[in-house]
Design a binder for these strands. Structure first.
Ligand SMILES: NC(=O)c1ccc[n+]([C@@H]2O[C@H](COP(=O)([O-])OP(=O)(O)OC[C@H]3O[C@@H](n4cnc5c(N)ncnc54)[C@H](O)[C@@H]3O)[C@@H](O)[C@H]2O)c1
Ligand SMILES: NC(=O)c1ccc[n+]([C@@H]2O[C@H](COP(=O)([O-])OP(=O)(O)OC[C@H]3O[C@@H](n4cnc5c(N)ncnc54)[C@H](O)[C@@H]3O)[C@@H](O)[C@H]2O)c1
Lengths: 225, 225
DNA sequence: ATCCCTTTGTGAACCGATGCACAAAGTAAC
DNA sequence: GTTACTTTGTGCATCGGTTCACAAAGGGAT
C-alpha cells in the first residue's frame, strides 16, 4: 500500500484521453500473458505510439511508474480504468435496430469493458418485439420511459439520417448527455452534451484521397483545362 | 468557362482533408434543395464548423469563391469531389462477413459516392457461398486472386482481432495500400500504407470519461485510500 | 464611373500537441 | 556506501491547426 504522488491533474488533454483506451487494451493483453511490469518503450510499441508521448500521457494521471523499472501492469490497468470511468458500468441504449444496430447489439466486445446494452429501440412495428442478443426490442414511443427506467446514460444512434436529430433531441430532453452517432448528419446539441460520430463514409473518402495521391500523384498535373 | 486561379496546393492539411467530406455532404443536400450559391457562413453552419476554418480549408483547393457572393454549389461539389478522388469509382473488398461485415455489405450509403463493394471474403465454410446484398461470399484462400481480378484498392477489415494482422499482411503483399480496420488491434504496416481505424469501444470509453467528469466531477475526490 | 455593401482569402497571433533530450530517481551489484 | 545502469518525468523547441480580423475583390445601384 504505497502512497504514490497523486497530482490528479484536472483537465487531461483530449488527445491523451483518446489514447488511454489504446494503452488499456495493450495492458490487458500483457496482463493476460502474465507480464508483471512494462517499460514505456515496450508499452508504446504495443500501442503504436511514441514512448515520450506515452510517458507524457501517463504523467497526466499521476506518477505511477518506477524509474529504472517501468510500470506495474495491474496497477496501471486499474488507474487508467478508473480515470476513464470503467470501474462503474454504463447502461447503453441502441436506437435503430437495422443492419447496423443489430450488429452492435450482437457484438460481444461491448459488454467486456463496463458497457452494458440495456435497451434496444426501433420505430418499425415489424422489428419491435423481436428478441436480439437476449434483449427485447421496444417501441420508440417508450424511449423516455425506457431511458429513465434502465438508467441509460449513453445512447447509440443507428437510425436513418432523417430520424437522428429528432431522437437526439428527445434523449437530451430526458437528461442524456453522451451520444454516439452513426447517422451521417451533423447533430445540433447544446454544449453540455458530448457527441461522438462514427462515419464510415468519411473514412473511405479520406482513404480515397490518399489513394489517389499515391496512384496518380506526380502526373496528376494533367489538368482538364 | 472562366479560368479561376489554381494554386492547387500540393499537400492539403490532414485536418482539412478530414472535413472535405463533411462539406461535400452539406453541399449535396443544398444542391438537392435547389440552392445555387452559398456563403461560407451558411455552409459552415450546415457542416458544423467555424466559417473562417471553412474558408481556409477551401482556399487550399483553389480560389473557387466569388467575393460578395459566395460559392457556386455545383462547381464546389465538383471541385471537392475531384480533390477527394470521388470522380472515379473505387472497388472495395470486405473481409470478414460476420455481424459487422454483413451490415456493411447491406449498407446502401456505400455505393452512393463512388465506392463499390466488389468482393466479400470469409474463412468460415458456413458463410462462404452465401449471397449477401447480391454478392457471393468467397473463400479467404481466394483473397489475392479476388483482389487482383476485381481491381480492389480499398480493403475493409471486419474479421476478429486475431485474424486482422494476417489478412492485413496478405492484402498489402498484393499491393493494397488503403485499409479501413474495424478490428480492435494496432495493425503494423509499412509507412506507404494508409490505415484508418474505426473503434467503437474507444469511442464509448471517451464518452464514459467525460460522462464521469460531468456526473461525479467535483466530488470525485472520494479517494479509496 | 463612383459609391456602398457583401463576402472572400489570408496574415498573424494563439493554442494545443508532439517529440527531443536530459536531469532526477530509482535498481542492482559489489 | 559507492558505482554503473536503466527508465521515468518533464522543460523546451517545434509544429500543425484554429481563430481573429481586415484588406482586397467583386456585385449592384444610381
Ligand atoms: N450499415 C452500415 O454499415 C452503416 C455504415 C455507416 C453508416 N450507417 C448509418 O447508420 C444508420 C443505420 O444504418 P442501417 O444500415 O442499420 O439502416 P437500417 O435502415 O437497416 O436501420 C435503421 C433502423 O432504424 C429504424 N428507425 C427508423 N426511424 C426510426 C426512429 N424514428 N426511431 C427509432 N428507430 C427508427 C428503422 O426501423 C430501422 O430498423 C444510418 O444512418 C446509416 O446511414 C450504417
Ligand atoms: N459487431 C460490432 O458491432 C463491432 C463493433 C466494434 C468492433 N467490431 C469488431 O469488428 C470485427 C468483426 O466483428 P463481428 O461482430 O462482425 O464478428 P463476427 O465474429 O460476427 O464476424 C467475424 C467474421 O470473420 C470471419 N473470419 C474469421 N477469421 C477470418 C479470416 N482469417 N479471414 C477471413 N474471415 C475470417 C468469421 O468467419 C466471421 O464471419 C471484430 O474484430 C470486432 O471486434 C465489431
Amino acid at each position: 500500500m504505497k502512497s504514490p504522488s497523486q497530482p490528479r491533474d484536472r483537465g487531461i488533454p483530449e488527445a491523451t484521453v483518446a489514447r488511454l483506451p489504446l494503452y488499456l487494451r495493450a495492458l490487458h493483453g500483457m496482463a493476460e500473458r502474465g507480464v508483471a511490469t512494462v517499460s514505456s518503450e515496450d508499452l508504446a510499441v504495443a500501442a503504436g505510439v511514441n514512448s515520450a508521448k506515452l510517458r507524457k500521457d501517463l504523467s497526466h494521471l499521476g506518477s505511477y511508474g518506477t524509474r529504472g523499472v517501468g510500470y506495474e501492469v495491474e496497477y496501471l490497468v486499474y488507474q487508467i480504468s478508473r480515470e476513464l470511468g470503467l470501474t462503474q458500468d454504463w447502461a447503453v441504449a441502441i436506437v435503430g435496430v437495422g443492419n447496423l444496430g443489430r450488429a452492435l447489439a450482437n457484438y460481444g466486445g461491448f459488454a467486456s469493458r463496463g458497457f452494458r446494452v440495456a435497451a434496444l429501440l426501433d420505430a418499425d412495428p415489424e422489428v419491435v418485439g423481436d428478441t436480439i442478443a437476449g434483449l427485447n426490442v421496444e417501441h420508440i414511443d417508450e424511449l423516455e420511459a425506457v431511458i429513465k427506467r434502465r438508467g441509460v446514460s449513453i445512447v447509440v444512434l443507428a437510425t436513418p439520417a432523417e430520424a437522428a436529430q429528432e431522437v437526439c433531441d428527445r434523449v437530451i430532453a430526458v437528461g442524456v448527455t453522451s451520444i454516439l452517432n452513426f447517422a451521417p448528419v451533423v447533430l445540433s446539441v447544446p454544449d453540455s452534451v458530448d457527441v461522438r460520430k462514427v462515419d464510415l463514409s468519411i473514412e473511405l473518402q479520406i482513404l480515397a484521397f490518399h489513394e489517389q495521391r499515391k496512384a496518380g500523384g506526380p502526373l496528376m498535373a494533367v489538368d482538364s483545362q
